[in-house]
Design a binder for these strands. Structure first.
Lengths: 244, 244
DNA sequence: CGTGCTGTTGAGGACGATCAATGACGGTGG
DNA sequence: CCACCGTCATTGATCGTCCTCAACAGCACG
């Protein structure tokens, strides 16, 4: 915890000071690894602790009756995987979190959470963390079912780059498959493939068989991406002064 | 205040007791009316108070660069219109809340909010209220871009009936236009019209030129609607025991 | 009696789904 | 070392859902 990890970076931008941060870090234990493809949170799992993603990339998904997978959100280092379940313990047997790459996770016991919430700044920061997720849902909802496949795929990629930047992960490579993009956009894998090829032919994505953005400016242009919430982290740190 | 209004019903199901409820009601002032079509919250508005919807129906929307309107959520009596902005004061000039019918609103000053949050149960209940909205975003996101127009329209109608039931509003009539449905589903108004006619021919919607559900069972069947979160209010009241 | 908004209907075309097959790659076991 | 397998990426062809454009009807409003 000498180095400023993504979690610390995120919490600080949400208005937490060093003392509170330490309190939170100290109850964060049980580090574990989850293999790519495995579930971080089993569908229908009844949790007794909150899970934090320390490394790797995961996704919150929802299964549909026909077996399909809707990806609701991608998660990166520093994200809480299921904080919302602490507040609203819905037992949704169709919802879960899946590791998209090999992941490193840690847990915070609900008992410890209860104690953490007695610190006002921590309570507000955690509330904000959940609202940040909600804000992402809002943006995705506003763009779902609207625009061409090109715009939607481009927008999704912009979102993820922005999310990663906010926690200090740079580099244009996204360690996800085209299948993941399809499940996140609601497009078929075939069409996602053709769309990605279009983006490659525009020299926006690397020609390699992985998803790597090499021209962010143009990507944002194609996506009509509103970079405003790209700066969320920076904005938040300004708001931090409002705390207490 | 004497009668159990939708707001009280909602807050109680979120774990608030009578004392805390009174404290909240007492800082709820400045009742006002908003005409159908007008904005409850102007886009880009910088709020100094939270707004509660007392009567009528409104929608949280987002404007897109081409002037289109994406409806992110419908709001009913008892809903907070913009509670999330208290926590995460993003100044999104494209987002707003619009009255769909004549509405009656009230406001809670942010100063009073600050004081309310010193009550742990109130803080948790308000956090839960925002997470309830987020849960709705999740469900809508999982269903957006998926399935046929018929399923999507039917699902939207189910959601709204369920939301209204949860705060004590019964009756199958929804006071919204086909245009609203189109903006909420991402379909064209023309196709929404045809879809609604299909639902009418199935005797699920009333033949009248308004949106009135007369066969909920079949509607839920068409929508593949998972009634689980229909019971959110009742579930919540069970969870209430977990508070504190 | 015009004006504007919502609802309704028709025709044509585009975007993306679906089905099907093949290629590239890494891992596993013989 | 090679055969086998599963996953993911790629390509082609066909088909259908839904969009777009355009016009009109009903209704409330001034």
């Amino acid at each position: 915890m000498g180095s400023v990890g993504p979690l610390a970076l995120k919490l600080k931008s949400l208005g937490i000071d060093d003392g509170d941060l330490n309190a939170l870090v100290q109850v964060t234990k049980h580090r574990a690894r989850v293999a790519a493809g495995a579930d971080v949170i089993r569908a229908g799992d009844t949790g007794k602790h909150a899970i934090v993603l320390f490394d790797g990339m995961a996704c919150a998904y929802q299964r549909s009756e026909n077996g399909g997978r809707s990806i609701l959100a991608f998660q990166h280092a520093g994200d809480f995987c299921d904080l919302y379940r602490y507040v609203l313990p819905e037992r949704d047997s169709a919802a879960g979190v899946q590791a998209l790459t090999d992941c490193s996770i840690a847990v915070i016991d609900y008992r410890d959470m209860d104690r953490l919430l007695t610190r006002p700044k921590v309570a507000l920061a955690l509330w904000r963390a959940t609202m940040l997720d909600a804000a992402i849902y809002r943006v995705r909802l506003a763009n779902a079912s609207r625009g061409t496949a090109l715009e939607r795929v481009a927008h999704l990629l912009c979102e993820q780059l922005a999310s990663r930047e906010a926690v200090g992960i740079d580099g244009g490579r996204l360690p996800i498959s085209q299948i993941d993009v399809a499940d996140a956009t609601g497009l078929s894998t075939v069409h996602v493939n053709r769309t990605i090829q279009t983006l490659r032919s525009l020299n926006i994505l690397s020609p390699a068989s992985s998803i790597e953005v090499v021209a962010r400016k143009q990507l944002a242009q194609v996506a009509k991406f509103d970079g405003r919430y790209l700066n969320m982290a920076r904005l938040l740190s300004r708001w931090a002064v409002r705390v207490e």
